[in-house]
Simulated assay, not measured.
Amino acid sequence: MCIICGSTEAELHFGGISCRACAAFFRRYHFAKRSDILCTCKTRISSSHPCRKCRIEKCKEAGLTIEKIQVGRDKHSNTLELSKNRQSLLAARVVFRETWNIHCAVFNWKQFEVTRNEVNNGVFDELNVFELSCSVSKDIDLTWKMIYKLFPSTGKLKKSDKIALLRNFIPKLWQIDPLLNYIRNFKKYEAMEQPDLEQIIINFYKGAMPEKGSMTDSEIVRIFKPFWSFYFHNMIQPIIFMKLKEQEFMAIIWLMFFDNGYSNISDECLEMCWNIRKVILRELRNYQIDGNCEESRLFETLESLEYIEKGERKLMEEMLICEINDLRIHDDFREILKESKL
């Protein structure tokens, strides 16, 4: 879907996802002689496109950039003459490599997060550990819808393979959420005092306790704070230092989803995962080449997979400690943690 006008036919244009009409508008706008423009949306009919000012802003939000316009094809440029400088223009023309899937993934992930928050009545970040474990079935459904949009070939998989892939992914989703949340709110968490952090930890576990025999606040902090410290120092902090772009994050997320190392998927599913991973890796490499990244950037980015796997293993221990202390965990999530996947 075109993020700018809502057209159902969209593809990669000038670094973002849009339909051909909006891409053409973006290109014409930047090469036309124009003065400052004002928003006229209030005077337009509801079924029309946004005004030029709002439409160009939407183009920018969708990721379209003037740097990726191929100037050699510009009809409006009065500074370049193709007939006189044909060879130099052809040499200067930049042909950007295929990164379609990871660019689409950025938009689809944002839609996923918005829908997920709406499903949880807008308080997803405030859920305690029990309430979060209750959202498993909803997460599986929303994740599958996102996957099918991005990779339609997954629709051919057997139901058992679809379920296995989704259930394999859920513990990883529990690592991705706090990671992305911390990165987006980095300044807030950096300025947070120790008592405030401890109160967040208390709230996360206390709501999952039975009415009788609950732990004190100090016991909650003593038992569970080391887990949060582990996640920060061994997963979140190393990935923050990488300063990954959104497209790189999306590549990492879907490399995790299509992990072909699991034993609970069929040979056909394994083959599909292998092929999709090749596509994602190729696009990740193309994205980094277009961004003039160092050759080592690819290997450094892939290291984040190891950090997230460490967090996933620690999650298993955390949930076991929750059960030992009689904290409620939804049966669906408990079964996913107990499944043998390797």
Rank of each mutant, 00 (worst) to 15 (best):
F299H: 09
L302Y: 10
L284Q: 04
C322L: 05
R285L: 07
L315D: 04
I308V: 03
G291A: 14
I321W: 04
E309R: 12
T301F: 04
E318K: 14
C322V: 03
Q288E: 15
G311F: 03
I324E: 00
Y287I: 01
F299G: 12
G291L: 09
E318G: 01
L315A: 07
E294D: 13
I289T: 07
L315R: 09
E323Y: 11
Y307D: 07
N292H: 08
I324Q: 04
L305S: 00
S296Y: 06
C293R: 07
R328G: 10
I289D: 09
N286E: 10
N325L: 00
L284V: 03
L320A: 08
E318V: 02
E300W: 06
H330E: 11
C293L: 12
N325R: 02
D326K: 06
E283C: 01
L320W: 14
L298S: 04
R285Q: 12
N292G: 12
F299P: 02
L298D: 08
E309H: 14
I324W: 02
N286C: 05
I329H: 15
G291H: 08
L315G: 03
I308L: 02
K310F: 14
E300K: 05
Y307G: 02
I289K: 04
H330V: 13
E318D: 02
E303Q: 14
S304A: 03
E323M: 15
G291M: 14
G311N: 03
R285S: 13
R285K: 12
C293P: 00
L327E: 01
N292W: 10
R297W: 03
